[in-house]
Design a protein around this nucleic acid. Structure first.
Length: 281
DNA sequence: AGTGTATCCTGCAGGC
DNA sequence: TGCCTGCAGGATACAC
């Protein structure tokens, strides 16, 4: 589910409410989301203070006293929900938002941070800051970082002969892009998803970077795309779905030329594109 | 270096 | 209604 705009939306909400709160209790309901024994995880977090909330790629980063970093990856169906109250009202308030509770953090001043994840593909990992730094260096650049120039972007594309859609999904090449925005940016820039990354001209790669920035920014303004599971930290839905031009629109007319949108599968994922606007040669 | 495939897990839509 | 198949915003590990 959650790609850069969705994760950024959650981070911005959490950054308003979490800093300054202390973790008073940790309840691990589904230990398979952790990479350490649940009791170890719990003890390491008890009493720590949340100092800041950031994002790197699709990871939500809680900066904690200690210091340590809690890196939360939402996988496909994860939700990180905050309620300024504690206890029972969490499940009643907000209706269906908390349906698959996996971890519960009780905070002080009073509040509850809930990690909910139907498929449990997500993860919560504790790191020492410098350990996280090392991990972060293995991720590609942030697409919205102005320091990433189109010349840099093109140079990176030239290093790979894999299909450009697969390249976009590879977090070590560029961070934060997922299946929705890969299809959308390729459509907007007129690039066919199976084109080898290194086959893109300078002009095409500049257009692709511009399209990525455009679609990510627009989606962020809408609070992300809710297909099914994604919720903001306060339980809201993202409003970008109606603005998707090709993703999940197989058979519908291309908004530019009316040719039916096609779906192909490679790399185990669907890619949606217009066969006329995005030529493969 | 690449691709294709499988895996983790649950829920839902669609076909019959 | 029920059963079955396919599919889903991600990440990773494996064999070729």
């Amino acid at each position: 589910m959650p790609e850069l705009p969705e994760v950024e939306t959650v981070v911005r909400e959490l950054a308003q409410v979490l800093p300054g709160r202390r973790i008073r209790e940790v309840e691990v309901i589904h230990a398979d989301l952790l990479h350490e024994p649940p009791e170890h995880f719990r003890r390491a977090l008890l009493g720590t203070r949340i100092q800041g909330v950031n994002r790197r790629g699709k990871n939500i980063l809680l900066r904690l006293s200690g210091p340590q970093i809690l890196a939360v990856n939402l996988g496909m169906t994860g939700r990180l929900l905050f309620r300024p109250v504690s206890g029972a009202s969490l499940t009643t308030e907000g209706g269906d938002t908390a349906t698959h509770e996996a971890l519960l953090f009780t905070l002080e001043p009073p509040g509850v941070l809930l990690y909910d994840d139907a498929r449990r593909f997500g993860s919560l990992e504790r790191h020492h800051p410098r350990e996280w730094e090392a991990k972060s260096k293995r991720l590609g650049p942030e697409p919205l970082d102005p320091a990433l120039t189109s010349a840099d972007f093109h140079r990176r594309l030239l290093r790979s002969r894999s299909p450009v859609r697969s390249w976009l999904l590879d977090q070590t090449r560029i961070a934060g892009i997922g299946n929705i925005y890969a299809s959308e940016a390729l459509f907007r820039s007129g690039v066919h998803p199976t084109r080898p990354a290194r086959s893109l001209s300078e002009g095409e790669s500049a257009a692709l970077l511009a399209a990525l920035r455009e679609v990510l920014t627009e989606a962020l303004q809408a609070g992300g795309t809710t297909l099914r599971d994604y919720r903001t930290a306060s339980g809201g839905v993202g409003g970008f779905r109606p603005s998707l031009r090709v993703y999940d629109r197989e058979g519908e007319p291309c908004p530019r030329c009316n040719t039916p949108v096609e779906r192909i599968v490679f790399g185990n994922r669907s890619a949606f594109f217009c066969p006329r606007c995005q030529r493969s040669e």
